[in-house]
Amino acid sequence: MEIVCPAGTPAALRAAVKAGAHTVYCGFNDETNARNFPGLNFDRAEMREGIRFAHDHGSKVLIAINTFPRAGAEGIWHDAVSDAASAGADAVILADPGLLAFAMQNHPDLRRHLSVQAAAANSDVINFYARCFDVKRVVLPRVLSVAEIAAINDQTKVETEVFVFGGLCVMAEGRCSLSSYATGLSPNMNGVCSPASHVDYHDEGDTLAVRLGGYTIHRAKPGEPAPYPTLCKGCFATQDQKGYLFEDPVSLNAEQLIPQLKKAGVTALKIEGRQRSRSYVAQVVRNFRDAVDALEEGRELPAGMLARLSEGQAETTGAYRKIWR
């Protein structure tokens, strides 16, 4: 199985490649990618150099251009696709039908992957994207169980890539505007979710109120960790209950499901975290590479090695187990 690793910086790309990443994915430093954070991502020269480095070491590079182009400014996204082609990217990861059509028409030889942001959640729609835009791979939304992934693979020739580690979207990706409702900035339009620019920590004496866009969605007592206020993992109240109504502050770790995912016909395992440090990336990559190598060689998987890297120390296998729903 192929390990697909995040790189938010040229240093992280080199670290991932050296740690054994088969494939690295990254984005340009603008609103065309879904991790549009300050200080992150690649300018055009860095991208060309990064691709050269990866190719020299036998790794591939995928460029995520997976926000939805803004009406009146599609040229920014078109240029990103054209520059990905000329930089020698092995594929582009796209979500928007209009942009897929542009890429197919103008760069037919540039391989196209369907981003998780397209939320293509069944084989009918995946095959439709393949018919319309000749996509070769789909990144599956994090709403599917392993059995459903197996059923999809039975009914499509399109390769499937699934998330196995890191941040976890609770909502169908690309179909969520919680962030822009609270802050004005959204994953689809701006490439950010629950942005740090809108977070504030308010000292209330005995507690710390954590707010996003002015909405208090965490309260931490002294000594308690104050998790980052991502909206879908916030603490909320209804008339008679208080708690994590959408999802606990957990992150995804499907490491132990790798054998089942392989059996389900999955081609590639994706690690989330282009915002992470190169040392984090290197360690996660090394562990996952070991795991898939062990699987290929019929050895037992090493257990629990990644737990301490997870957000807030709590982990979930998410929708892969049906009971999550």
Partner: peptide, 28 residues
């Protein structure tokens, strides 16, 4: 878009607010 995948080609249809129509390319 699953529903569009299932419509016979040439059938007229409308598009609801849950489909991501953000730009001219997708509209076209």
């Amino acid at each position: 878009l699953t529903a569009l995948a299932m419509l016979p080609e040439g059938t007229a249809f409308s598009v609801g607010p849950m489909v991501n129509v953000y730009n001219e390319g997708t509209l076209a």
